[in-house]
């Protein structure tokens, strides 16, 4: 976002005498606590216009793409003819009404992942991180507070988005083609999608904390989520691919965010554990490095 006008203000002629923090009551209260660091991280998160815009875009993508996919499948919207004409429609996809209504998740994961990345690389690129770590010299509370703020905020937005997209999608699909939350695996898939988004936001945060560089972290995130699942089966020997590919974050996530996991993939519980392990390892290494590295 371009800076339009440079503001300038005259300095006061002399320092304005101020009260300061000499009041014993005020001074006694001063200390760094975990909750205070969380409150600070929440202010940082909500005070950026980019946060609001990103979350709005994610909502539009989740609900809009779900509705669009449902429209295509139900025939209300005609999709372009010929090869490559949209990933939606036909085959297994059309027969899986839950997946149709959650079609927007694939793109939304990148958006929330970037949100997670920027929550920390934005501090490194602006130099704000030094002010942050000077205020909280123990450092780790900052990372844990970011995990909490990003994880909870994304989840709180993703739950209504996921259920909203599901409800709208099923309505568009219409009776006969649609499904309900009481059908087997459906509730888990809808809720699992929301959990998956929150997890990917944290994956972005972890990559950002590890690499401390916006472009590098977003590139890695994109590669891990979008490129690796398609590329690794092609380049690796089959036995390797079979044992590695299900453990990628996107495939691990898909096993609990879809109604029935694909053949060769992990079980829903296994997928959740694997994704959790990715986060624990990534954030653990980031935390260790945050303590060790010069800021």
């Amino acid at each position: 976002m371009a800076t339009t006008a440079v503001l300038d203000r005259p300095v006061p002629n002399r320092p304005v005498p101020t009260g300061g923090l000499r009041d014993a009551h005020d001074v006694a209260r001063l200390r760094v606590t975990a909750w205070r660091v969380i409150a600070s991280e929440w202010v940082k998160f909500r005070s950026l216009r980019s946060t609001v815009v990103t979350i709005a875009i994610a909502l539009v993508v989740i609900i809009g793409f779900g509705a669009l996919a449902a429209g295509v499948v139900s025939g209300n919207v005609t999709r372009p003819a010929g090869p490559g004409g949209g990933a939606g429609g036909g085959g297994a996809f059309a027969s899986n009404p839950t997946a149709v209504s959650l079609a927007g998740m694939t793109l939304a994961q990148i958006i929330v992942g970037i949100l997670g990345v920027l929550a920390i690389t934005g501090e490194y690129s602006s130099g704000m991180i030094r002010a942050t770590l000077a205020a909280v010299p123990r450092r780790l509370p900052v990372l844990w507070a970011k995990v909490l703020v990003i994880g909870v905020s994304t989840f709180v937005v993703a739950v209504p988005a996921s259920f909203g997209a599901f409800a709208l999608g099923q309505t568009i699909l219409g009776t006969g083609r649609n499904t309900t939350l009481s059908d087997p695996g459906v509730l888990r898939a809808v809720l699992g999608s929301a959990v998956y988004l929150a997890a990917i936001a944290l994956l972005g945060l972890g990559l950002g904390a590890l690499l401390r560089h916006t472009a590098g972290a977003i590139g890695t995130l994109f590669g891990l989520l979008m490129v690796a699942p398609g590329l690794l089966p092609l380049v690796l020997p089959k036995s390797w691919g079979d044992s590695i590919v299900p453990y990628l974050p996107s495939n691990a996530g898909e096993s609990f965010s879809s109604v029935a996991p694909k053949a060769g993939m992990l079980s829903a519980g296994g997928g959740a554990l694997v994704l959790a392990a990715w986060l624990v390892v990534l954030l653990g290494v980031s935390a260790w490095l945050l303590r060790r590295r010069d800021a």
Partner: peptide, 21 residues
């Protein structure tokens, strides 16, 4: 200027002030 360009001066100071109470 070690400040996030998208954040206001008040919010920048608020985020720092909150950490120490």
């Amino acid at each position: 200027k070690a400040i996030h360009p998208g954040r206001s001066a008040y919010d920048h100071l608020l985020a720092l002030a909150l950490t120490n109470g």
